[in-house]
Write a protein that binds this DNA or RNA. Structure first.
Lengths: 397, 397
DNA sequence: GGATTATGTTCCAGGGCAAAACAAAACCGT
DNA sequence: ACGGTTTTGTTTTGCCCTGGAACATAATCC
């Protein structure tokens, strides 16, 4: 007999409503009162107040000083997400290591980002170095801050459930269990959740703080790194696929007769719009900044212009295919593609208008992510805090 | 103030559990007893029995005669989905009109399928004719059968919420509101839910009866019609995109330098693997059966072989892209592609193995749907009955 | 024919929310 | 200054739903 799903009981009701209240407060751009929570959720003030009290008791919500407000009636007690809860977000990328502590309000409590070249590095020392960064960060935190978990963003294919990095081409890693290597540096018993870097970067676009919706809720995120990663976000949730390996948009085939890709296929998007591909097609060194390419295009350099056109065409073809399948007509460009968004947009838009079937009804839009460095680390922390927001009852008990 | 979501109350709890019980019984291949429901859901026998009693009272579950079973203890009362509830599924396709009544047990209570050529037909008479079919069907039903709603499968882009068929290229229809045209023939007050034909056909793969899981739960469905439609199914749910326009896999670009498509793009999958494209590339008339093509390939006809190879390559390229983005490594072929699945599989599999990034960890599989004619009509009925299973409380009150 | 066993039912207690009355703390007007 | 008004937060009461345990039922087994 297969357990379909567990039946809901009174405590489930409570857990659901606690989550709803916390989510409502987190989602609001400015502090809500108990009465406002009741209004937003349709609950009675009595019920909302009781749930809020419990959340405040557990530290998941804080009552803050009321600012002067010229309004009639008894003054409200403003509620904000609890500052005591935080999560550690880590990131390993080809060019950097990052550790960042984010609290439930979405504030960066502490961070440490170090540049470096980790292409072809060995997993053990690299993760040990990252663990060291994390340990330093945690040691300097206020005593009363509760770090509820750790997330780690990795540039490759990750088996989330098993906690294994299967393959990270840019790092040259495969079959690594980072949690085991990080454990010595983290507080004992701390769990480490893995995630794909693009998925987690996309999450920072979907939510600006734990539970707070960002500028877009439905979009395709394209992360321009050495390769090209991506993620599809629907209703604010990153689609991770049936095994969490989704979002490899860099290997969508743009031209079956195109150049071979190291993945074994031919004509992958990455071969046209990846950072290395773009720069070398423009005749620039591989470590040049995207801004340099933009400057050359502006100066009328024909090779640079051609490289950009080729990339735009490839992006258009690949994205149109994805949009036709998923019906998500908003594209957010991150990484070097975000920096070049201004130059890429006209041509990409043109291709999308022509190749997306529903373009006549809803024209696809292209936006640039305002990426901060190491967005993956922030996303990893958001991922952990998202669990807290989704099930606060577990933290109360 | 935006209403986040409504708070859960006692009645929500009950509604959730009623749905859970009904879903559990529907999902089970053979009848369950009250105690078995309790076991499967983790509820106590008392609670499960109470919920079952309510569902039986409302006709959503039936107690059936117990067959002799050599087991100790008080004999159980077998429960099955209620036979009183049914839904009407309709379908308009380029080659047929169909009306089918499906009950909650997934049995076809009545059906009527008529062939015809509706390419370039006028919406009003065609839908009137379909309405006539439906009316005849409904008139002949047993008096005690409750038809809870109507679903309509259409071969085109549908705005589900607005109830508008935006564009159906094969029919030559655009901006049609079928509900208005069907209403005169249906019982007054009956609602008509629209859906894309491929989405609904995919649903028949995902569930064999209302709430009963089919052979696959996560798969890409490709429906070979005149064009090529499709749907992505994740966890048994058809992904309809942010506006319900998803699944247009026929217009994924396979080769940007390929032949122009009537959609305005170039090198769409449909131009290689669509029924017309395949047949004409093989030198067959457009109304030939897929079996004829298969026969020619078997006989060693070079043109037919080339057509099939081209289609397989295009399918491989397009599907690999989708699998890389969505991580759904199971493909189910329907329509003429299903009939040719045996011949297509080796080459498509080959392309997928090479182009899917995660193929090394989980090899993509290709299956053929055992399509019955007018699967869209069945899917449309399943869609309506799915609402009943999802919220039985509404039917009790 | 009694013991055993599994199913279905009945009864009571506890937890959680709704509704309404009540208390509190501000602003407004005279 | 002081009562009226208004909005927020709290308390009380009642209802609904599930859990748990005891009981009733209907078969098989020995």
């Amino acid at each position: 007999m297969i357990r379909e799903q567990t039946g809901a009981r009174q405590s489930s009701l409570r857990a659901t409503n606690l989550a709803l209240v916390l989510r409502t407060v987190c989602a609001s751009p400015d502090p809500l009162s108990r009465a406002a929570v009741a209004g937003a959720t349709g609950m009675t003030r009595a019920t909302a107040a009781r749930l809020v009290d419990d959340l405040v008791g557990g530290g998941l919500l804080d009552e803050v000083e009321r600012v002067v407000l010229a309004r009639r009636g008894r003054p409200a007690t403003p509620l904000v997400p609890g500052a005591r809860f935080a999560a550690l977000g880590l990131q390993v990328d080809a060019g950097l290591l990052a550790a960042r502590v984010l609290d439930l309000r979405g504030r960066v409590v502490a961070e440490q980002v170090t540049d470096g070249d980790f292409v072809g590095s060995a997993p053990v020392p690299t993760l040990a170095r990252l663990g060291g960064l994390a340990a330093d960060l945690l040691a300097g935190l206020p005593r009363n801050l509760r770090v509820v978990g750790t997330g780690l963003a990795l540039p490759g294919i990750v088996d989330v459930d098993a906690g294994v990095l299967l393959r990270a081409p840019n790092l040259g890693w495969s079959d690594v269990r980072p949690a085991d290597l990080l454990a010595p540096h983290l507080p004992s018993g701390a769990s480490v959740v893995l995630g794909n870097e693009a998925d987690l970067a996309a999450r920072t676009v979907a939510e600006t703080a734990p539970g707070r919706p960002g500028a877009h809720r439905d979009f395709l995120y394209l992360s321009g790194q050495i390769g090209v990663g991506g993620a599809a976000v629907l209703a604010g949730r990153v689609m991770s696929g049936s095994s969490g390996w989704a979002g490899e948009m860099g290997h969508v085939c743009v031209d079956p007769d195109g150049p071979p890709c190291r993945c074994g296929s031919t004509g992958c998007l990455e071969q046209y719009a990846g950072r290395h591909a773009l720069l070398s097609a423009a005749g620039l060194p591989l470590d040049a900044a995207p801004g340099e390419l933009a400057a050359r295009v502006a100066a009328g350099d024909p090779a640079a212009g051609r490289a950009l056109d080729t990339a735009a065409r490839a992006l258009g073809v690949a994205l149109a295919g994805v949009i036709n399948v998923l019906d998500i007509p908003t594209v957010v460009l991150g990484g070097h593609l975000g920096e070049l968004a201004g130059l890429l947009r006209p041509a990409v838009q043109d291709h999308l208008d022509r190749r997306v079937l529903s373009a006549g009804w809803r024209r696809p839009t292209i936006a640039a992510a305002d990426t901060h460095p190491a967005a993956g680390a922030t996303g990893a922390a958001l991922r952990v805090l998202g669990d807290v927001v989704a099930d606060p009852a577990r933290r109360l008990s």
